[in-house]
C-alpha cells in the first residue's frame, strides 16, 4: 500500500515539475524576447556618419577655420569616399566640387516633397571660413544611401 502511494506521489511530483519547467521556459523566454525586441532594432546611424564625414572634410580642408587648398584631389585625399553610396557636394564661394552618386541629391530633394520609403540620409552645413583673410561661405551637402544596412 505504502509502495503504491509512493509511486503515485512520485508521478505527481514529476507532473508538478513539468508544469514548473514550462513556467520557467515561459518566463526566461519572455525576458529574452523583450530584450531581443528592444536591442535588435535597426538603428539608422547614417546621420552620425554624415556628420562625421562632414567634420573630417572641414577639418582637413580648413584647419582652424582657414582654407588651405580647395580642390577635388584635396578632398579625396582627406578620407576614402564610397562613391556608390555617398554623394558629396562642397562649395566654396563660386567654386564647387561634386563627388559620388549624383542621383542621391535628387532623392534628397524628392524627400522634402514626397514620402520616399528607402530614402538617403541628407545633411547640409554652412561654415564661415577665411581664405587669405577674405570671408567665404563653405557649403557642404552630403547624401548617404546605405539603406540595406540602416533601414
Amino acid at each position: 500500500m505504502i509502495k503504491r502511494q509512493n509511486k503515485k506521489g512520485q508521478v505527481g511530483h514529476a507532473v508538478t515539475w513539468i508544469h514548473k519547467f514550462f513556467i520557467l521556459v515561459l518566463v526566461i523566454g519572455g525576458i529574452v524576447a523583450v530584450i531581443l525586441t528592444h536591442y535588435s532594432q535597426q538603428y539608422d546611424i547614417r546621420n552620425y556618419e554624415a556628420n562625421t564625414i562632414a567634420r573630417k572634410i572641414v577639418e582637413c580642408i580648413a584647419p582652424e577655420g582657414k582654407i588651405e587648398v580647395f580642390s577635388e584631389q584635396a578632398i579625396r585625399d582627406c578620407l576614402p569616399i564610397d562613391e556608390k553610396e555617398i554623394f558629396l557636394n562642397i562649395s566654396l564661394g563660386k567654386d564647387n566640387v561634386a563627388i559620388g552618386y549624383e542621383y542621391l541629391e535628387i532623392l534628397c530633394q524628392a524627400e522634402k516633397e514626397t514620402e520616399v520609403k528607402k530614402y538617403p540620409s541628407c545633411l547640409e552645413e554652412k561654415y564661415y571660413v577665411l581664405e587669405d583673410n577674405q570671408e567665404k561661405e563653405l557649403g557642404i551637402f552630403l547624401a548617404i544611401r546605405k539603406t540595406e544596412k540602416n533601414l
Binding site: 582652424e64 577655420g65 552645413e125 564661415y128 577665411l130
Partner: peptide, 19 residues
C-alpha cells in the same frame, strides 16, 4: 545638436581671427 555645434565652433573661431 552635433551638426550645429560643428558649424558654430568653426564659424566663430575663423571669424575671431579675421583682421
Amino acid at each position: 545638436e552635433n551638426i550645429l555645434q560643428n558649424q558654430e565652433h568653426l564659424s566663430l573661431y575663423s571669424w575671431l581671427q579675421k583682421t
